[in-house]
Simulated assay, not measured.
Amino acid sequence: MPYTTEEGGRLNNFAVEPKVYTAEPPTKNQIRNYIILGVGAVVLVVGLFAVAIGVS
């Protein structure tokens, strides 16, 4: 584990830093899945509102 020694002999520990990488743009398949999930979420929320209005 990386550490430094400060004044008075105290040790200061540092966490191990994760490997840095660049994000890749989503593929066509991932974009399609995001759209399907988004439409499903909208349908769910609209359905919940419709039930809430119908019950009240």
Rank of each mutant, 00 (worst) to 15 (best):
L44F: 11
Q30E: 15
V46Y: 09
M1V: 09
P26R: 04
L37A: 15
N33H: 14
A41G: 15
A50I: 04
T27S: 15
E17V: 04
A15V: 09
K19N: 10
G40P: 08
P18S: 05
F14A: 14
T5V: 15
P18I: 03
P2R: 15
A15M: 08
A52C: 11
V42S: 07
L48A: 10
Q30H: 08
I31W: 11
A15D: 13
I35C: 05
Y3M: 13
P26Q: 02
V45S: 01
L44M: 13
L48T: 04
G54S: 12
L11M: 10
G8W: 00
V42H: 04
A15G: 13
G54T: 00
T5I: 15
K19G: 00
E6F: 08
P25L: 04
I31H: 02
M1T: 12
I53F: 14
E6N: 05
G47F: 09
I36R: 12
A50P: 00
Y34C: 09
L37M: 13
I35S: 08
E24P: 00
V39Y: 06
G40H: 03
M1F: 06
E24M: 08
T27Y: 04
G54N: 08
E7F: 11
G47H: 08
F14Q: 14
P25K: 13
L44D: 00
T22K: 09
N33D: 13
N13F: 15
N12H: 08
N12L: 12
A23N: 10
E24V: 10
E24R: 12
